[in-house]
Design a protein around this nucleic acid. Sequence first.
RNA 1: CGGGGCGUAGCGCAGUCUGGUUAGCGCACCUGCCUUGGGAGCAGGGGGCCGGAGGUUCGAAUCCUCUCGCCCCGACCA
Length: 585
Amino acid sequence: MKYSKLLIPTLKETPSEAEAVSHILMIRGGYIRQLAAGLYISLPLFLRVMEKINTIIRQEMNRIGAQELSLPVLHPAEVWQKTGRWDAIGDEMFRLRDRTGRDMCLAMTHEEIMTWLAAKELRSYRDLPQMWYQIQTKLRDEARPKSGILRTREFIMKDSYSFDADLDGLNKSYELHAQAYHRIFTRCGLLFYQVESDPGMMGGSTAHEFMAPSDAGEDEIALCGRCGYSANVELAVSQPPEYPTIDMPFEEVHTPEVKTVAEVSKFLGLPSHCFIKSLLLIAKDGAVLALLRGDEELHEDKTKRIIGQYRPAHKDEIREILGVEAGFIGPINMINKEIRVIASNSLKSGLYVSGANKKDYHIKGINPEIHFSTNNKEHKTLKLSGKMPEVHCLVVWRDIRVIREDERCVTCGAPLKIRKVIEIGNIFKLGVKYSVPLNAVYLNKEGSEVPIIMGSYGIGPARVAAAAIEQNNDENGIIWPMSIAPFSVLILPLSVSDDETTKAADLICTALNGKGIDFLIDDRDMRPGIKFKDADLTGIPYQIIIGAKNLKDGLIEIKDRRTKETMKMPPDTTVDYIIRLMVML
RNA sequence: CGGGGCGUAGCGCAGUCUGGUUAGCGCACCUGCCUUGGGAGCAGGGGGCCGGAGGUUCGAAUCCUCUCGCCCCGACCA
């Protein structure tokens, strides 16, 4: 392919709207252009990268027995209404009406349509299992598109769906996908982790995400270097750091106008881990008191999984519900109040200071082993009858804390690392969440009607490309992994007006063509400096540099974009040398 | 949706606070000469509804009101 025939509008300067490295380099390298917020045009080079990634995906999906098909991007509302998602999903779904006034939406994912097809076409256990996938456009009216193509309103997604007769089958399909994903991302030259993830609103039991480490990522994962534990921080667990108990009597202390953990800690001269941080939350079915150790932070997602959607209580609500000003609330004298209390596991033992539920007072020496009780009615009765007066609070022990870097792994005790990552793929065990409402059932051997067990599995090819750039670049530009580079080789005839140079370039083109290697030749009548800069920026893995000076000695030069190493050799051996390099990769 | 920033030539920016020649600089672009191993040099040239609308004023890129767009942080993310 000739450079002069391709639209590759490279930029010398960094565009002001780009922040992420991959975003900057994709724009500067002439890969993409922005049409509007979250909407991008793929230029020829980027399209080639996407095609290479999609080819790898297809090969690996086909290899596990999945079949490719293509579904509409415009959907009738009815299917989505049947699963309840028409109402459950808010502004993120693009909605419209057709000319007859019928409600329609644009596909943000395809569980409904795939399940609809399964309901129509799959009848018997003999039809199962099936794995169907497509590489198609998805549309989501994102609240905040960001970081170039990492979060857009329209994007390509490989989504596949498995249909099995039973859980064993689902587990097999799930495992096959996990293996395929490992092969895909490895072949794409990415560093990545498979981590446990929150099944969330997809509605399922098990879920994993495939995460590529990058500072541009929106997610964070916790990693154990020793045992391999890895999880999204949305659900990652760790051993809370342990501190020696500081002895203190059980007594009230006057703490006028001293409210936050930091203030009380300073006032009493005690470290923050000696405190119980009490937060009043308003959940759908009432107020919830969350107790954390003073050095901990409440984890919103973990908490939501326990009490559902919630918000922090306002100051006047605290006064109304607990009868005390914010800043002095705590687990004391809570036993008669009809408020759920959820306490962080780290508070199970030790001695603590917390608000006394009395203005300007805190209480020292709270001993959860004595003053807290697990959630059973018995203690309440005993307390009320005066037999166990020391119990102040009925608690449920839960993991509701945010984990931190270097805390200990719960399985092996090694320090955990936290990494920012780009989510490049995910796999979910859906179960019957979609097959039941859409009546996707089959007849089993016994002749009874049973819902199909489903799984769903996604990959964002553009995110794979972005992650590859994030992980492979230098001050001069992109360094593509060979497998997904737009071209394998870039030929740089430094002067297109020099006959010897052109002749040598032609020779190499012919040889590369003969070997089926995809190459680009920079045939532009430009100064060498420009060609070198563009070559490095666009990131094609190998450069064959043909200059008059080396040619006088019968030599041309091969440069490895990644290592910057160069090798001089006669033109007729160049192509074989390149092939050897490519095989080594 | 909340907070912040920015809209001036294709790109990157100055000018705006403190209103006043013909709105400026670098890069890119066009013509010519010259040059050809890391974004050359010289000479000449084209390109602007200063995001949009309304207002204040003798006069608005500049002040006021409204509005649209883009980016960043947060919320959201099926």
